[in-house]
Each structure stands twice: as structure tokens, then as C-alpha cells.
Computed example of a mutant assay.
Amino acid sequence: MVENIPRKIIEDLQTVCQLHDEAVCNHDKCREFSENLSALLIRLEDLKFYRMADRLMSVLLNCKPKEASHCEKANLVGAMMKEITKDAKKAAGK
């Protein structure tokens, strides 16, 4: 990732990543994660960080909140979020 992501975006990525960890068995948190990730995706597109926005879109495509059942892709989505956050921090030199 070559983009120089602003510090605020990295902080927001970390917050959303933490929210996903809390959301694994909580439907309301899962929906909150999905909504926050969508809002972050829109902000990234507005800032013209298209590569990262595309990666977040991939996460959203795999994120399907379900009521009364465990998310089948929780591990995949969590790993994707952690990788995106790690790459953003690395690109920012943090």
C-alpha cells in the first residue's frame, strides 16, 4: 500500500477493528461494525484513498450480520481488518 493514510483514518481503522472483536457474538455490535465500516469506506473514497476503500469493500462483502447465530466469517473478516490496519500503519511509518 503506497497511500499515505492520515493518522485519524488509522485511528478509525483501529477502532473499527476493535469493534469487530467485540461484535463476534453480539448482533447489535455486529451491525454497528458494519455501519461504521461503511461510513469509513465513504470517507476514504471522498479522500480519494481508493486502494484502501477497495479493501474495505472486500471486508463488507464478507460481512453479513446475522441474528441469533454465530457469524461464519468472523475469523476471516477479523483477519482482513487486522491486515488492512497493519498495512495502513506501516505505510504511514508507524
Rank of each mutant, 00 (worst) to 15 (best):
K82N: 13
V2Y: 06
K8E: 14
K90G: 01
K48V: 13
N26M: 01
P65N: 07
E35G: 07
S34L: 09
A39K: 13
C71I: 01
M57I: 00
P6W: 03
H20S: 07
I9C: 05
F49N: 08
S58V: 00
V77Q: 07
C30W: 02
A88Y: 04
D87H: 09
A39E: 05
K82L: 04
H20R: 12
C25H: 15
R51G: 13
V24Q: 10
P65K: 03
D12A: 12
R43W: 01
D21V: 02
D87R: 09
L40K: 00
L47G: 07
C25L: 15
C30F: 04
V16H: 10
K82V: 02
M1D: 11
Q14L: 14
M80Q: 15
V16P: 05
C25I: 07
V2R: 13
H20N: 14
L37T: 01
I84V: 11
A88H: 03
D87G: 01
G78I: 07
R31Y: 06
D54P: 00
N26L: 05
I5V: 13
L76I: 12
L56F: 03
L56Y: 04
C71K: 01
E11W: 10
T85G: 03
A23V: 03
S38C: 05
V77F: 05
V24Y: 06
I9D: 05
T85A: 05
S34T: 02
A53I: 04
K64S: 10
K94V: 10
R55G: 03
E67V: 02
F33P: 01
E3S: 07
M57F: 11
A68V: 04
D54I: 05
